[in-house]
Design a protein around this nucleic acid. Structure first.
Lengths: 141, 141
DNA sequence: TCCTAAATGAGATTTATTATCTTTTAAGAG
DNA sequence: CTCTTAAAAGATAATAAATCTCATTTAGGA
């Protein structure tokens, strides 16, 4: 699934959202900037071509995209928010040396986890989804 | 392992940290306030008995406790930091309705995960630790 | 092409967190 | 037990991420 401009326009309009240049640029940036960008990374990236975008707009658009399930937040133990354009089931590699967070997609792992919890109820809790945080270091670090 | 005051004093002095009333109160609060408290939850809790504690002190002490591996941060997709006094391997239940985060301790799960990744190298990445985020809802929510 | 609700821009505001600097204190030495 | 001093706490100022407000602009249907 390539993320062309046309594709991005469709994602927005399919959700009933107005297709604005800002929204396109922000969604493109979330897809394009690797390692799960912060709002600031996204602003910096977009300003290269579109220097006049307001930072408030970026925050507002990111929230709108999250509400409409086009992107999601990434959980971290830092105080700056990071964003993720991959909406399918997946897990994350957290590097303890650099601050990159990479995707880890593994269908089999999902099956293993689902199976494991099939016979193991957690009393008083209804499971919806698993996200495994795999912490360690990249070789390059 | 009960967490008596004496126990807390020892944890601090074992790390070569000065044993101050503030540090004791803060560590006690991290243990005592359920659901993984924010700095603000901790400040509020402590001020009941110790109204004069400075909020800057709480943040500084929390950092010190983290550096000395007496507590850790909890990862979330919110912009307020939360803290965890349980240092052993464990996982977390995230409620999507309320904002409680509960511990989930499961030795067997750790074994399953370790086994699973024993024959499944992630190229370019050296695994140190797993934390499973189990997202769902508590029955009471 | 026009109209209007929705989106953006600019900038003020809030709030969690950090930094600075002075005063106080824990705890080891004598 | 007292003295000394490095470390910690308190008070408050400073940052910075994120939110809010409101005037202006714009997407997209009529």
């Amino acid at each position: 699934m390539k993320t062309t401009i046309e594709n991005i326009r469709n994602q927005l309009s399919d959700k009933g959202l107005k297709v604005t240049p800002q929204r396109i640029a922000i969604l493109e940036a979330v897809y394009g900037v690797g390692g799960h960008p912060t709002a600031d990374n996204i602003i910096e990236h977009i300003r290269k071509n579109n220097p006049n975008i307001a930072s408030g707009t970026v925050y507002k658009v990111l929230d709108t995209l999250i509400e409409n399930k086009l992107i999601r937040r990434v959980t971290t133990d830092r105080d700056v928010m990071r964003y993720d354009g991959v909406m399918g089931k997946h897990h994350h590699l957290y590097c303890t040396e650099c601050d990159l967070i990479e995707d880890y997609i593994d269908e089999e792992l999902d099956t293993v986890l689902r199976e494991y919890f099939k016979n193991r109820e957690i009393k008083g809790f209804h499971i919806k989804e698993f996200v495994l945080q795999i912490k360690g270091t990249f070789d390059k670090c």
